[in-house]
Structures are given as C-alpha cells and as structure tokens.
C-alpha cells in the first residue's frame, strides 16, 4: 500500500520527537562529551584541544584508579552471585512448590525499590554498633566481627551484599521464564534414562538456557557501569574514597570539583566499557533474528 503525502507527513510528525532525541541527546550530547574529554575545560567548557592529556591525568588519579578497581570487584561479584542465586531461586520455585506466587513475590520485591532505599536499609543493618554484628554478639558469638562497612578494604563488599539482595529477584524472574520454556519431553526422556535431577540441570538445562543467562548478565552489567545511587546512599564513597565508583567520579568532577575535561574523559571511558560489553551481545542477538 503506498502512503499518501498526507499520511507520510503525519507519520513523520509522529517520529519527529524520536528523531530529535536521537540526534540532539544521544548523538549530539555524546559527541560533545567525547570532544570535551579532549580539551582542557575546567569549570567552563572550552575548545582548547589537548589530545589525550585528560586520559593520562585520569590514569594517574588515585580516586579514579580506586573507582575502577571497585567497579571491577563489584561487577564480577555482583554478576556472578546474582546469576547463581537467581538461578537457584528459579530452580527451587520450579519444583512445583506450594505458595509459589508468595515466594516469588518475596524474592522479587526488592527490585521494585530504589537504590537509595536499598542503600539506606543496608547501611543500617551493617552498622557495627547496633546492626547485625551487635545481634550476632548478643546471641553469644562474642568475637563475631561484621564491620565491613567501616573498613576501607571491605566497604565495597557491602555494596555487593545490597546489590545482590536487590537484583537476584530480577535474575530469578528471567530464569524462571526460561525454565518454564524447557520442553517437557526432555524431563521425560531424562527420567526414562534414570538421570538424577541435578545432573539434568547441570548437563542439559543450563546449556539450553544460554539466552536467559546472556540477557540477565547484560542487564546486570549495564547496571554495574551505571552504579551511582547505591554508593551515594550507602557509604557516600567512603570510608575516605574506599567505595568510590566511576559514575560518582564523573558526577563529582562535573558538579563539585569543576573539572569538566577530566569528568568527560572518565565518562568516555565508561562509554567504551559499555560498548565492549554490549556490542557482542547485540551482534549475537541480531544474528539470532530481530530485536525482541
């Protein structure tokens, strides 16, 4: 069916906002940020090209190095723990348990809450004076120490605990959908062969669920790169700079430290990381046919 001029104009007018957003926000703003990272802008943007100087400064910046170090620890632990915990929860629910809906709601509700709320609750729970450490001691474990949140070398693991609590339900929901999609015939065949259940999961089901694992892993990873609210609310980057993360580095250097060049160099580095994670995934999904 050919479109009349009138309909074509209407369709174009409906797409105008999307086109504008794509060009101005995504392409325009991103390019401008990348360009700023090549200048020596401080409080106000300027166009003095300095090559990769800001990136050199970045690599020599203790706080940035700590931030990157932290996000790697957080990322590896969060993605692997959330995948394992989420998968186990989904398998447990998939055993035709009673009160399935209630159990699923309990696992997933943290995902509906903000990182600010999550961070503040866990800050209170992990508080060494009155929190979990105190409870353990009052139960008779006198020597129990769980003061990670006030120790520079362990503060980042507290963010992992809170992050896993918040995100595992999401992984569970994705995995459960995958498990429910497994052909009943496979289970029957395995039963005929007398395979124990765990063997079926490890050798047959997990390899079949590659797509679910990939989707969950990419979702979690993009969340890792963006991590900001949790660090702000739970530890505010502390003690000292012990739990700083790259997104917070960018925000602080943009709005408090007035160092646009350095901030945009850090932001560009984040962009490159995201591309490295997402590009292979999108390529793989496009080859599998369509964006769905």
């Amino acid at each position: 069916m050919r479109l009349s001029l009138n309909s074509r104009l209407s369709a174009f007018s409906a797409l105008l906002p999307a086109l504008l957003v794509m060009l101005v926000v995504y392409v325009g703003a991103t390019s401008w940020t990348v360009w700023m990272s090549l200048t020596n802008s401080r409080m106000l943007p300027n166009n003095n090209f300095v090559g990769l100087r800001q990136y050199e400064m970045l690599l020599g910046n203790d706080r940035w190095i700590t931030s990157v170090h932290n996000i790697v620890i957080y990322g590896v632990l969060l993605v692997s723990l959330a995948l394992v915990v989420g998968f186990l929860l989904a398998v447990a629910i998939d055993q035709r348990v009673r009160a399935e809906d209630t159990i699923r709601s309990i696992y997933l509700y943290p995902y509906s809450m903000s990182f600010i709320v999550t961070g503040l609750v866990w800050q209170w729970l992990l508080n060494p004076t009155l929190g979990i450490q105190h409870v353990l001691r009052s139960w008779g474990f006198e020597g129990a120490t769980f003061d990670w949140i006030v120790r520079p070398e362990t503060a980042i693991y507290c963010l992992v605990i809170a992050g896993v609590w918040q995100a595992s339900g999401l992984v569970m929901a994705i995995m459960l959908a995958g498990l429910r999609g497994v052909d009943e015939e496979i289970w029957k065949a395995a039963r005929v062969d007398g395979l124990p259940k765990w063997r079926v999961y490890v050798s047959i089901i997990v390899p079949m669920m590659g797509a679910s694992f990939a989707t969950a892993a990419v979702l979690l990873s993009t969340g890792v790169v963006r991590l900001y609210d949790l660090s702000v609310s739970m530890t505010n980057g502390g003690p000292g700079i012990a739990s700083e993360v790259p997104a917070k580095f960018v925000m602080d250097h943009l709005f408090e430290r007035a160092n646009i060049g350095l901030a945009t160099a850090a932001a560009t580095t984040m962009l490159i990381t995201v591309i490295a994670v997402v590009a292979p995934y999108l390529y793989w999904r496009a080859r599998k046919g369509g964006m769905r």
Binding site: L3, S7, R8, A11, F12, L15, A18, L19, M22, V25, Y26, G28, A29, T30, W32, T33, M36, T222, V225, R226, A247, V250, M251, L254, I260, A263, T264, A266, A267, T268, M270, L271, V274, V278, L282, M291
Partner: peptide, 29 residues
C-alpha cells in the same frame, strides 16, 4: 504499522543507545 523509510534504522539505534550511561549526557543537557 507505517512503513516509513528508515524506520528499522531509527528503531535499532534507539535500542542501542538505551545502554549508554547517563553520565555521557548529563552535562551537555
């Protein structure tokens, strides 16, 4: 529903940019 020219390109691009962290846009915006 409307076969607009370039629709798939626009849609594909929108799905890709959804992954970019906010830190890239905030200051220019």
């Amino acid at each position: 529903l409307w076969r607009v020219r370039g629709a798939n390109i626009l849609f594909g691009a929108m799905m890709v940019v959804a992954f970019i962290p906010y830190q890239l846009f905030i200051y220019p915006l």
